[in-house]
Design a protein around this nucleic acid. Structure first.
Length: 505
DNA sequence: ATGTGC
């Protein structure tokens, strides 16, 4: 970097341009690494608006943070650590931070294909949206597809989608097309509190509220025919997108361990600029307990999305009078976008063995890292062993939901992702307006009427306030987010979808 | 995100 590098300043934080779409906050003071923001000028203006950059810089104070803390193009402020943030900490002498995973553990997205076309669906929109709304529990509080007893919750936490398979809610093919095959073997249900388990008991198979939704979409654009073909996608096809997480159970796991870690590792907390970043040192009891409990909550969320998938198949069977197999309702993929995971990465190092960006490295070392992806999607390219066999030769599907008025994208993990973002890209459009501001700006029913009359999008929600909070205008431009991901080569465009029906809390 | 809050 030269002195003539282009710079920007937001609220006292200086960013230097490294190259197109790559900005760096240089390392100084108590920072253990620099930070990088991956964004276009337009997205950077929005990222500079709130506390995102301060939180990103704070994250570089985490012990063992490796190379840099990174903010994806959809980044915005979160609890302690930006949503859209990626922080890779050394698994041996670093730390793990619940705030860098997020409250909604394994919030994620899955896409289910159908062999229906938009024409097949036209005229059935009202019936479908009503039937899905009636059959898929949504909104705050309890009531799920399965009323689990204590043993059920234990089994779900331990076995994830293997439990769903054994109980007839999943097919083997579903497991083969899910990240981690729908089961984190590191799950340790004994480290999930009774309170968390009690909250999860009656929420198995429920959407929740906020930005969570079930959407029927049509494929409007295919950008890469060959990869779309290997994903089973083509223009005009109908697909289903499910976006939700681990409900009250994951929320309680996060709360429990934030408290425990704040208390148990006050010394580490003192060295951090924000209490919300509380972290447990790698190798400590609390690090292992949180990791085991978080993995169990991850399993819970996969079962949650699986039960909703099961119910969605039954609804389609009734409406289209054919069984789910005949309708081609296969899982394309399921991605987790709020997790931490132990992964081995090739880390660039300088002469002293200090981790540095790949372009400055004199050598690379294999290191085991806790990769925290909070509002960030794994985007592994072809060849990584974690990518399921079905996609190992092409790269993993990456699903990026936009707003209910804009539609979504399917990308494929990009060749640059391992070198630039620890194998990650964006997770959505990212908010530009707070929920409270949104409710002053929009009225739920008006939003619904406009979407229906102007765009033929049928929305049904438990609460009008939620529709206002999720109005298309509160989100960044998903096209711009994806353009940056594609240009950087971290996640490459494959197809685009547009909403037809949307149900939400 | 969340039986929405120290």
């Amino acid at each position: 970097m030269t002195d003539t590098a282009e710079t920007r300043e937001y609220d006292g934080i200086e960013l230097r341009k490294v190259r197109e779409f790559v900005w760096e906050i240089p390392q100084e003071g108590g920072m253990n690494a620099p930070a990088r923001v991956l964004a276009s000028d337009a997205l950077l203006e929005q990222i500079g608006d709130d506390k995102t950059l301060q939180q990103l810089r704070n994250a570089t104070h985490l012990p063992g943070i490796t190379t840099y803390a990174a903010c994806m193009p959809d980044g915005h402020q979160g609890y302690g650590f930006p949503v859209g943030g990626v922080g890779a900490t050394d698994a041996e002498d670093g730390c793990i931070s619940p705030g860098a995973v997020g409250y909604d553990i394994n919030c994620g997205v899955r896409m289910i294909r159908t062999n229906l076309t938009y024409e097949d669906l036209q005229g059935n929109e009202e019936e479908l949206v009503e039937s899905l709304f009636a059959n898929v529990p949504s909104g705050l509080g309890g009531g799920g597809i399965v009323e689990g007893d204590a043993d059920t919750v234990e089994a779900v936490l331990e076995r994830g989608m293997e439990w769903a398979l054994a109980e007839g809610y999943a097919t083997g093919d579903d497991l083969d097309h899910c990240e981690d095959e729908g089961r984190r073997p590191d799950a340790r249900p004994e480290f999930v509190s009774q309170k968390a388990k009690d909250r999860g008991r009656n929420q198995l198979g429920s959407l929740g509220s906020g930005n969570h939704f079930l959407e029927i979409q049509r494929v409007t654009d295919v950008f890469d025919e060959a990869i779309a073909d290997s994903f089973g996608l083509q223009e005009d096809q109908i697909v289903v997108l499910i976006h939700c997480g681990s409900r009250g159970l994951g929320h309680q796991v996060c709360t429990d361990y934030l408290r425990k870690i704040e208390k148990g590792h006050g010394d580490l907390l003192e060295s951090l600029p924000d209490k919300e970043l509380a972290a447990a040192p790698a190798g400590s009891e609390l690090a292992d307990e949180y990791y085991g409990a978080m993995c169990a909550a991850i399993n819970f969320a996969w079962v949650n999305r699986q039960l909703i998938t099961h119910r969605t198949r039954r609804v389609f069977e009734r409406v289209f009078r054919a069984d789910a197999d005949e309708l081609g309702m296969e899982l394309l993929y399921d991605v987790a976008h709020n997790i931490a995971k132990k992964e081995i990465h090739e880390v660039g190092v300088d002469e002293d063995g200090t981790a540095v960006p790949t372009e400055d490295a004199v050598a690379h070392e294999e290191r085991e890292l806790y990769v925290h992806r909070k509002g960030a999607t794994r985007a592994f390219p072809a060849g990584r062993e974690e990518v399921p066999a079905a996609y190992r030769d092409v790269g993993q599907p990456v699903i990026i939901p936009g707003s209910m008025g804009a539609g979504s994208y399917v990308l494929v993990g990009g060749d640059e992702s391992l070198a630039q973002t620890f194998g990650s890209t964006a997770h959505g459009a990212g908010r530009v307006m707070s929920r409270t501001a949104a409710k002053q700006e929009y009225w739920g029913e008006t939003v619904q009427d406009e979407l229906r009359d102007q765009d033929h999008i049928y929305v049904k929600a438990q609460s009008g306030a939620t529709v206002a909070e999720e109005a298309p205008g509160v989100y960044k431009d998903v096209d711009e987010v994806v353009r940056v991901s594609d240009a950087l080569g971290i996640g490459d465009k494959v197809a685009r979808t547009f909403p037809v029906c949307n149900i939400k809390g």
